[in-house]
Deep mutational scan, measured.
Amino acid sequence: KNAAQIVDEALNQGITLFVADNRLQYETSRDNIPEELLNEWKYYRQDLIDFLQQLD
């Protein structure tokens, strides 16, 4: 998997990933985040941060 796929997957589930103060953050109206997504975000944290910062 790559960062773009993970960001896309999150968006499809109503979750927006973004970077604030060099930390990976998310916004969602969901009550909870599936644990497998959280684990994936932790595992790919630096890739996601790098990818999202390139988009800014």
Results as ranks from 00 to 15, higher is better:
N22Q: 08
L38D: 03
N39W: 10
L11C: 14
A4Y: 07
K42H: 14
T28C: 06
L55A: 12
Q54D: 09
I15Q: 00
L48E: 00
N39I: 12
Q53N: 13
Q25E: 09
L37K: 03
Q53R: 12
Q25H: 13
L48W: 00
Q54C: 10
N22V: 05
D47Y: 08
W41Y: 05
Y43T: 12
V19L: 10
Y43V: 13
S29I: 10
E36N: 10
L38I: 11
L37C: 03
Q54A: 12
N39G: 07
A4Q: 12
I33S: 01
A3W: 04
T16R: 15
E27H: 14
Q46F: 07
Q13C: 09
N22S: 09
V7H: 04
Q25Y: 15
Q54I: 11
R45T: 13
L24D: 00
L52V: 03
A10N: 02
Q25V: 10
A4V: 05
Q25T: 06
R45W: 15
D21V: 05
I33T: 03
I15S: 01
F51A: 02
R30Y: 06
E35D: 10
Q53V: 13
L37W: 08
V7E: 00
Q13T: 04
D50L: 11
D21H: 08
P34T: 09
D56C: 12
E36Q: 11
Y44K: 04
L55I: 12
F18Q: 05
R23S: 13
L17D: 02
D21W: 05
E36H: 11
N39T: 09
Q25N: 08
D56W: 05
V7G: 01
G14W: 05
D50C: 09
A20M: 11
D56I: 12
I15Y: 09
R23G: 11
G14R: 04
D56P: 11
Q5I: 07
A4F: 06
N32S: 14
Y43N: 11
R45H: 13
Y44A: 05
K1D: 02
K42N: 15
E35F: 08
Y26M: 05
T16W: 12
A20D: 11
W41T: 03
E36S: 12
A20R: 13
Q54P: 09
N2V: 08
I6E: 01
F18P: 02
D50T: 10
D31H: 10
L17N: 00
V19T: 05
N22M: 08
A4G: 07
E40W: 04
T16Y: 15
E40K: 07
R30N: 10
Q46K: 10
E27P: 02
I49K: 04
T28D: 02
N2H: 10
F51E: 02
W41V: 04
E9Q: 06
E35Y: 08
R23M: 15
Q5D: 08
P34D: 07
P34Q: 05
E27M: 13
N12S: 15
Q46H: 09
Q53Y: 09
T16M: 11
L55P: 10
S29C: 13
Q5G: 05
A20L: 12
N12Q: 15
V19A: 05
D8I: 14
L24S: 00
D56M: 13
A20P: 02
V19W: 14
L11D: 04
D8F: 14
P34C: 05
A4T: 05
D56N: 13
S29Y: 11
E9G: 03
L17M: 05
V7Y: 14
K42V: 12
A10K: 00
A4P: 05
Q54K: 14
D47V: 14
R23T: 15
Y44F: 08
Y43D: 10
E40V: 07
I6Q: 01
T16H: 13
R45Y: 15
L48T: 00
K1Y: 04
T16C: 15
Q25S: 08
Y26P: 01
E9D: 07
W41P: 00
L38G: 03
R30H: 09
I33E: 01
D21R: 04
E9T: 05
A10E: 01
